[in-house]
């Protein structure tokens, strides 16, 4: 049943990339448990505007858990306390009256803060540009049913492709590693016949770009997968590692 909550918030405020930043404390009252976490932030922002204070900047768009924009680190966990849920789909019924909630941006050197809770995740786009595609120009495709693909492979490729590119994996990782994100894309194409011609080149170039962007190494802690709102599996990292080694040997043979 719907209830109303009074909450204390500690929110990271940072004017721009150069600013040092600090926590500010706010109180919000009469928050309905039916609200989403971001709707609670809407209430707070409208309160701040009315008080002639600067509202808090945060990324959000679809509010359906699919665009990957929202990116709040809530009480020490990316996207908050619930498993497999984005910030926008987190609802206030997951909190209790009187709670203190700490909200920070993603913390990772390759994701510099733009303002408050907004970070720059363009490194992910550059990794995709390095090889996260199948090089086929529009108009060259054969009939879609020409190559049957075993259902299990198609399902597994889909599970990998469900990644929303939010960056929670990086934020969760003590090394700020992007292995889960990169391996999801590598896996998707590695599992499909269409992805085979560029399989080795793809993994080599995406990993090289990932390193260039300054993401850390993977130490198999598994925090990334545990915090991933789409439940992307660690097996993709294993698959990518295998492919990467295979690609290195293949390159040595030439």
């Amino acid at each position: 049943m719907e209830k109303n909550l009074n909450l204390n918030l500690k929110v990271w405020r940072q004017k721009n990339a150069d600013d040092k930043g600090k926590f500010e404390e706010y109180k919000v009252n009469d928050i309905s448990t039916d609200m989403s976490f971001l709707e609670m932030f809407d209430v707070l922002n409208s309160q701040l505007i009315t008080e002639d204070k600067d509202p808090i900047a945060f990324d959000h768009d679809c509010r359906e858990g699919i665009c990957g924009s929202c990116s709040m680190h809530i009480n020490g966990r990316p996207h908050g306390p619930k498993h497999a849920v984005t910030t926008c789909q987190l609802h206030m019924r997951s909190f209790n009256d009187g709670d203190t909630i700490v909200v920070e941006p993603w913390r990772a050197a390759p994701f510099p803060v733009i303002k408050d809770l907004v970070v720059n995740r363009s490194a992910f786009d550059r990794i995709i540009s390095a090889g996260g595609f199948i090089s086929i120009n529009t108009g060259n495709a054969q009939d879609a049913n020409a190559i049957p693909i075993p259902k299990d492979d198609a399902d597994e490729a889909f599970a990998a492709a469900a990644c929303i590119g939010c960056g929670a994996c990086v934020a969760a990782c003590k090394n700020a590693s992007a292995m889960l994100f990169v391996s999801a894309k590598v896996s998707q194409f590695a599992l499909l016949p269409q992805g085979q011609p560029e399989r080795h080149q793809r993994v080599s170039e995406m990993v090289a770009q990932m390193d260039l962007e300054g993401f850390g190494a993977c130490t198999n802690t598994g925090a990334c997968s545990a915090e991933c709102p789409k439940g992307i599996s660690l097996t993709h990292i294993a698959r990518m590692n295998r492919d990467y080694i295979a690609a290195s040997f293949a390159a040595n043979e030439k």
Binding site: I134, Q142, A144, A154, D155, A161, Q188, L192, Q194
Partner: peptide
């Protein structure tokens, strides 16, 4: 559909491997 499948879009499939 042809274009999307060729670019790696994982549409749902039947057990026979077809879309």
């Amino acid at each position: 559909i042809d274009q999307s499948v060729a670019s790696g879009v994982p549409f749902a499939r039947e057990y026979g491997g077809l879309l």
